[in-house]
Design a protein around this nucleic acid. Structure first.
Ligand SMILES: [Zn+2]
Ligand SMILES: [Zn+2]
Ligand SMILES: [Zn+2]
Ligand SMILES: [Zn+2]
Lengths: 139, 139
DNA sequence: TGTATATTGTTATATTATTACATATCGTGA
DNA sequence: TCACGATATGTAATAATATAACAATATACA
C-alpha cells in the first residue's frame, strides 16, 4: 500500500476461514455497524444460511480485535484503528446512532492511566461518548 | 440520614410509580446487576406479570439516571453514585462478570476533558474497565 | 497415518425486547 | 368539578438477538 490511510487489514493476515473472511469483508466494505441478522441477509448469496454461522464468525473476529461489538446497539463494526489492541473508544450519536471509532493514541494512554491510578488490573477498556453528530447537531 | 455512605436514594425522591418503585427497590436491595427476566421472576409475588411491565419501569429508571444498564450483560444495576449525572464508569470482571460502579469524581472530570479535547459535543459517556476482580485475580 | 483441534452445517430453542391495543390514572387549566 | 392530554398500566402476541446440541469436515502436525 502506498498510503497508511488507505490501509485495510487483509483477511489473510489472520488466517481467516471462509465464513470469517466473508463476514469481515462485508463489515470492512460497509464501514458502518451492521447487525448479525443484517449480515446474514447480506451473505445469503454467499452461501450463509444460519445465524450461528454469522455469530461464530463474529465472535472470532471480535476475539482477534479486528472487529468490535457496539454493545448498546447489538451491532458490529470493522476496526478502523491499526493498534487499538482490544481497547476501544467510540463516539455514538444519541439521535441517529452513527458510530465512529476514535483514533487517538493519547486518549487511549490517558484512559489506561486512569485505570492504573484507580489501581485496577485492567485487561481492556471500552469508552463510549454519546454525542450529537455533525449531521444531527444543527437540528 | 447520619452518614453519607448509608444514604440510599429514596423512591419518593423521584415520584416513582408503583411498578417503578418495586423494580427500583429490588435493584437497590440486590446491589448487583439483575436481568429483566430475573427481575420479573422476583417480582411475580408483587404482582408483576409481563416482561413489558419490567422493561417499562427499567427504561424510566435508566432515563432518571438512578439505575444503569450494563449493555454487555443486558443487566441493570442501581446507581451507587450520588452524582454520576448519567455519565457512567464501571469495572466488570472479565471472568465472573462482577460489576462495580466507579465513584471517583476526578475520573469523571478527566474523561469529560478527554471528550472536550477531542472537540466532541458529549452528552454523556460510558466507560467500562474489564478487569480481573479480587476474587478471580488469584486464580 | 493417526489424532487432536478447529471449523462447519443444521435444527431447534433460549433469551432479550418491542408492537399493538385497550384501559386506567394523574395533573392541570377552564 | 369537569374535560383534556399526558403518563402509566395490563395483557397478548410477536420480533429481534443469541446459544445449545449434535453430526460431519477440514486442518495442523507428530
Ligand atoms: Zn479498533
Ligand atoms: Zn447523528
Ligand atoms: Zn451511577
Ligand atoms: Zn471476578
Amino acid at each position: 500500500m502506498t498510503n497508511s490511510q488507505s490501509y485495510n487489514k487483509k483477511t489473510n493476515d489472520y488466517n481467516l476461514t471462509k465464513n470469517q473472511k466473508i463476514v469481515f469483508n462485508l463489515l470492512q466494505n460497509s464501514g458502518e455497524p451492521l447487525k448479525a441478522y443484517a449480515i446474514l441477509e447480506n451473505l445469503k448469496r454467499e452461501g450463509l444460511k444460519s445465524p450461528l454461522q454469522v455469530y461464530r464468525a463474529l465472535n472470532k473476529l471480535v476475539e482477534l480485535g479486528i472487529i468490535h461489538k457496539i454493545e448498546s446497539q447489538n451491532s458490529f463494526i470493522a476496526c478502523s484503528n491499526s493498534n487499538c489492541a482490544s481497547n476501544t473508544a467510540f463516539t455514538i450519536c444519541r439521535r441517529c446512532g452513527d458510530v465512529k471509532e476514535i483514533k487517538n493514541n493519547h486518549l487511549f494512554e490517558q484512559v489506561s492511566d486512569l485505570g492504573k491510578k484507580n489501581r485496577l488490573k485492567v485487561h481492556r477498556f471500552n469508552l463510549e461518548f454519546y454525542v450529537d453528530c455533525n449531521g444531527c447537531k444543527v437540528n
